[in-house]
């Protein structure tokens, strides 16, 4: 499957991806409305990291062997049979944070403002385009195949 990847050498930490992500996951999907009416209650589905001159945005890796699915006690975190993405069903989630404890990338976040549930990148399941990739002015976020799949083909 295709996923979102960061290329830290191109990232400037402009945070446009974060804004695009927030808007894409808002009710109105409009930037001014989203910020004026919903903002503190919106959680972005990606994390922007900075350390000295380095920066990148990271979101769910939709791991092949996903530790969050193994750790989820409710079955909320699951593999989407159609897309193969790691999907989260907020209706089932009880907010036990086992997924947060397990994700080695730290990209499952607490959505404590609206409901006590976990939240993560859903590859913009409502939309046709990936909001963060689309918003990145520097192609620091790209949509690509995994290197793991390339390795497999070689084998």
């Amino acid at each position: 499957m295709k996923k979102i990847y960061f290329r830290e050498e191109y990232c400037m930490a402009c945070r446009l991806c974060e804004i695009a992500c927030l808007v894409a996951h808002s009710k109105s999907k409009k930037i001014i409305k989203a910020y004026k009416e919903e903002f503190p209650n919106l959680t972005p589905r990606l994390v922007i990291e900075q350390n000295g001159p380095l920066s990148f945005a990271i979101q769910c890796r939709h791991c092949e062997d996903a530790p969050c699915i193994a750790a989820c006690v409710t079955g909320a975190m699951h593999r989407d049979r159609k897309t193969n993405a790691v999907s989260h069903n907020a209706e089932k989630c009880v907010g036990c944070w086992m997924c947060i404890m397990s994700c080695p990338f730290g990209v499952i976040l607490r959505d404590i403002k609206e409901k006590k549930v976990a939240t993560k990148c859903d590859l913009c399941s409502d939309e046709k385009i990936l909001a963060c990739v689309n918003a990145c002015p520097n192609e620091a976020l790209i949509c690509a195949e995994s290197i793991k799949n390339k390795d497999k083909k070689k084998e």
Binding site: E8, S55, C63, A144
Partner: peptide, 18 residues
């Protein structure tokens, strides 16, 4: 965050095809 994890230890899940 994950940015502190040295490159050689990073998961293949973050590396795209060239």
């Amino acid at each position: 965050g994950y940015i502190y994890v040295p490159k050689k230890y990073r998961s293949k899940e973050v590396i795209p095809v060239e």
